[in-house]
Nucleic acid binder design. Structure first.
Lengths: 265, 265
DNA sequence: AGCGTTGTTCCTCTATGCGGAACAATTTAT
DNA sequence: ATAAATTGTTCCGCATAGAGGAACAACGCT
């Protein structure tokens, strides 16, 4: 009865357990059985059993006092493995350091996953006032500076899909018009960096530039985020220049050679 | 028929899927169906189905070319959430930066999980020659400097359990004698820091000191790791002093007040 | 080519995992 | 204080989901 003619077999219990894991977030780091039962549409007993199993392998931890479950250290271990095996990560991480020092703001590495943009590394700035982000965070590509850079250098049909998927307004500044988005991407390609001013989160502004691998393909973005109070208009070109520079540094570490740039778009 | 009178119900399919996830490591980041089938003692078809399900939720990614599976970005997301919600992490991370600059070596934050020690944060040094470690890495407590510090300030029965569990020699320098271990822990308590010289990995030496929370309890350890060539004997006391200092800084950020130290052991 | 692998799908049967209810342990309301 | 309500876990019986084995398809290796 499924739409797909070729649907690989999915184990419902496993899928449900994974959905439980995914339901945790930075802002809701712990959940109760009944909450999950309702939000996932499963019987309490089912959720309870799934959680017990997850707990037995350290994927969640039960707080004996409150009966709340939170993510366990097993997921931390796995996350570390992923991080260590992403080439971009190991090569570009040192560049982030320099960028943080040069700009005084928090920097990230981001890649595309599907239509979203995910932070794969974070280097925190030393300022007491900081933007709350986290590694692994998934954001809509059309509303972040890193996402827009990645879109600007991705296949046309990726942009099409993003648009088809809907441009939701997260703030008043969000880009919701397809033409406006395409235009913005063109501007980004010309300038070489992208800026997002309160397009996703009120009070924050970010600047991003592309990172290319040895084939010249844009594989990730390097980005700087800060509160708008510190990211003043007049500073943006200077920050843009620094971010582009950092992107180039990182690209070179990945084996990219600028002399071959004309081979690619 | 189980030994436990009160055994919570475990779902085998879920458990097997989690076992698959756990079987990945930094050194074996990708696996084939047949490998997993053998190592886990499950039918190929079973493993294939489990992997499909894991892939459908982004927990693993299938390489179309090689048919190998590796961990997906979902686990990165989860790892970031855990990191963000560990109080020690957010408070102590800035201290790591300073320590890396002061010592020129890679620094970690570590906590105990069960009988093992896990790195929850890493700040890489700028040296080209670096020790390969990763966040989430689980090590035996009795063979690392951070683990020994944590043991030195933990309940007696934790130490007993570690000993009961067996002191395995990972290198010629590993502590395998219970009395020797207990003695070492006493020395650590007197000195305030611990040293591990090739006790787990040949060629590396590490120094660690405790971090206390607002109640005075030792909740984590701060540690510096480097190749023995750079971690010369004569430097160790100086490094020890710096690590202790960093531990105190971090403790204060967690609300620890030294004046109340005599209230606790 | 042909053989030895590989991973996925199909198939059958059993055992597993589902939902509902009962229970126990709390917390909230009165 | 006691009662009422809400929590999470265990029990239970039935239906079905999931395990293993075999067949099939796709490669890769001599």
């Amino acid at each position: 009865m499924s739409k797909n003619k070729k649907s690989p077999q999915i184990l419902s219990s496993v899928r449900n357990s994974l959905r439980i894991l995914k339901s945790f977030s930075t802002f809701e780091p712990s959940k109760k059985v009944s909450e999950l039962s309702e939000s996932l549409g499963l019987a309490k007993s089912t959720v309870s059993r799934l959680l017990s199993t997850l707990a037995s392998e350290g994927f969640v931890i039960k707080d004996k006092k409150t009966n709340e479950y939170r993510l366990g250290l097993s997921v931390l271990t796995l996350g570390g493995i992923v991080t260590n095996n992403l080439e971009i990560h190991t090569e570009a991480a040192p560049v982030l350091n320099k960028l943080v020092n040069d700009t005084g703001e928090t920097a990230h590495l981001a890649i595309m996953d599907g239509l979203d943009t995910i932070y794969i590394h974070k280097e925190e700035c030393h300022h007491p006032v900081r933007i709350l982000t986290h590694v692994g965070r998934r954001n809509p590509s059309y509303s972040t500076s890193s996402g827009k850079v990645l879109l600007a250098y991705s296949e046309d049909d990726t942009v099409d899909k993003v648009i088809e998927n809907g441009l939701v307004a997260h703030t008043q500044n969000s880009i919701t018009n397809p033409d406006e988005l395409r235009n913005e991407l063109e501007v980004i390609r010309q300038k070489g960096y992208s800026v997002s001013t309160e397009e996703l989160t009120i009070g924050t502004r970010s600047v991003a530039a592309p990172i290319r691998d040895h084939t010249g393909k844009v594989v990730s973005a390097i980005t700087v985020v800060g509160p708008i109070q510190r990211m003043k208009d007049y500073k943006i070109p200077e920050i843009g220049r620094k971010v582009i520079e950092a992107g180039k540094d990182a690209s070179e570490r990945l084996g990219y050679d600028e002399r071959f740039v004309h081979r690619f778009t």
